[in-house]
């Protein structure tokens, strides 16, 4: 890794760390985070480790993400062992710190190292018997353009397939409405001989739905509610119901007289 490349990688890590730590739009933070997590530490470590070794193209492509992942795994264990809370700040410090430290190592040790091979010779080659063939060809820009058109088409096709798959997740989906009635976890009864319960309706139907809710219990207890919910909407209410006997909640959809959903909660006997 050259001195300039080491500086560039370290600077990129600091910029990415800034984008991750300061409020940045997702369009900026996601690529910055991915660079920090899976690219930059590995590039810097590859440079620091193999600075004097000649690596093939495939090794230069595979080692950076692998070593970056290793930084998260082994560095994460180290942070945990040191009692550091694993969160955004610590992950950023770990990845950016590793990148900068590895870049500094490249700069510090560059002069001490002896080159084993001229980087110019690092062209990925194929063996054809004893004949060495360089795997580069000279083409006009026009030819290059047409050579790359199929790759662009491939990208377009898989993007279309992805869009279709995401759209298909809702195909054949069964609509439903969920009704629940459970003792309230963190509230106490505000009236004598009453207990607090949480009544909830979740609508996952295909469109806006009007519901009627009837809650009935001992001692002539009864309450009704009219609720209209959009798809994905939730309605929740905490009620004070009788301690004794069973409380039943019926949910009616539209104008039907038969309950669409029913839940009941036993009381003390």
């Amino acid at each position: 890794m050259s001195r300039r490349a080491a500086l560039l990688v370290a600077a990129a890590a600091l910029v990415a760390a800034g984008a991750v730590l300061w409020p940045a739009p997702a369009a900026l933070r996601v690529p910055a985070g991915l660079l920090l997590a899976l690219v930059l530490p590995g590039i810097a470590l590859t440079g620091a480790l193999f600075g004097v070794r000649v690596l093939s193209t495939v090794e230069r492509l595979v080692l950076p993400p692998a070593l970056s992942a290793a930084v998260l795994v082994i560095g994460g264990l180290g942070l945990y062992a040191a009692g550091v809370h694993l969160g955004r700040v610590s992950w950023t410090a770990l990845t950016a710190g590793t990148t900068v430290a590895a870049g500094a190592a490249v700069l510090a040790t560059r002069r001490l190292r002896r080159q084993h091979a001229d980087p110019q010779s690092v062209t990925e080659t194929a063996m054809f018997g004893t004949v060495l063939v360089a795997e580069r060809e000279r083409l006009t820009v026009r030819t290059v353009f047409w050579r790359l058109v199929p790759l662009a088409l491939a990208l377009l096709l898989v993007t279309g397939a992805a869009a279709l798959a995401i759209r298909a997740t809702t195909a054949g989906r069964q609509p439903f409405t969920a009704l629940s009635l459970a003792p309230a976890a963190d509230s106490v009864a505000t009236q004598p001989n009453r207990r607090a319960v949480v009544l909830s309706v979740r609508c996952e139907e295909n469109g806006d739905v009007g519901y009627a809710l009837r809650v009935a219990g001992d001692d002539g207890y009864q309450q009704t509610f009219a609720v209209t919910l959009p798809p994905g909407g939730t309605w929740t209410r905490t009620l004070q119901v009788p301690v004794t006997g069973t409380v039943t909640a019926d949910l009616f959809m539209g104008t039907t007289a038969v309950p669409y959903r029913t839940v009941h909660l036993a009381g003390s006997r």
Binding site: R138, L139, R147, V158, A161
Partner: peptide, 28 residues
Amino acid sequence: WDRTVTMPVLGLAPELLALSAIGVVLVA
């Protein structure tokens, strides 16, 4: 457009990957 540049030898990889991508669409 007619300036020359050097680039790795791609062979039939672009065309075959496009064909393979059609397979991805079929599975989708």
